[in-house]
Design a protein around this nucleic acid. Structure first.
Length: 209
DNA sequence: TGAATGATTTACT
DNA sequence: GTAAATCATTCAA
């Protein structure tokens, strides 16, 4: 099988909403000692600090955790929520703009067996990677990937996006789990492929457009 | 130092 | 439908 090629930094160094939309259909690739897993991205959300109340970088908050978002596009912003689940974001835009795209769901393309092992206990194929935390577990993404360059050289733990086919339709809708952000929560900054069974959550089916 | 809090998932009633 | 799990990060003191 042809080894997929990482997308160039120019893909990430664009306005965050464009990047989020263009992520749908792209392929997420992870190579570790255990093997290679790949998945087609079917759901992503844009976070646009400092004005976006839902973003960790809201108000220009620059801490050890958010630091990477203020840097060069094409790096990984990885953080832990609820003390249990890792989330994986792509840093986008210009340097100094704390913007990022959250990877919410992928559809397994290869390495489903390895994903299954990592997820523990039997899962249906669509339950393997249909959520931001699930995806990180299946792809073995954790704090060690914080700041990792998705375009540059990688030692043993490759993580990057590769080109893929854009789906026929892309749906825009409000983001999930950010009700605390008031009117920002209602902005349609979530993008998904409505033809995929792997979009995350109960809300996806309820809200399917 | 210490307390509060999640960009969620899972199991259980 | 509801609730528990679980801890790095953040901010206040």
């Amino acid at each position: 099988m042809l080894r997929p090629r990482p997308l160039p930094r120019s893909f990430y160094a664009r306005p965050v909403l464009q990047v989020a939309r263009d992520c749908i259909g792209k392929v997420l690739v992870r190579e570790t000692r255990d093997g290679v897993v790949t998945g087609r991205i079917v759901e992503a959300e844009a976070y646009r600090g400092p004005e976006d109340r839902a973003a960790h970088s809201f108000g220009g908050r620059r801490t050890l955790r958010t630091e990477v978002m203020f840097g060069e596009a094409g790096h990984a912003y990885v953080f832990l929520v609820y003390g249990l689940h890792w989330h994986f974001n792509l840093v986008t835009g210009k340097e100094g703009e704390p913007h990022a795209v959250l990877m919410r769901a992928v559809e397994p393309l290869s390495g489903a067996e390895l994903m299954q092992d990592r997820r523990g206990r039997p899962r249906s194929p669509r339950d393997l990677t249909s959520g931001p935390g699930k995806l990180c577990t299946a792809f073995a993404i954790d704090g060690r990937d914080y700041g990792s360059d998705l375009c540059g050289p990688r030692a043993g733990r490759a993580l990057y996006l590769a080109d893929g086919e854009r789906p026929e339709r892309i749906v825009r809708c409000p983001r999930v789990g950010v009700d605390y952000a008031g009117s920002w929560a209602r902005r349609p900054w979530r993008f998904l492929d409505p033809s995929s069974a792997c979009v995350s959550g109960v809300r996806a089916s309820r809200r399917a457009a």
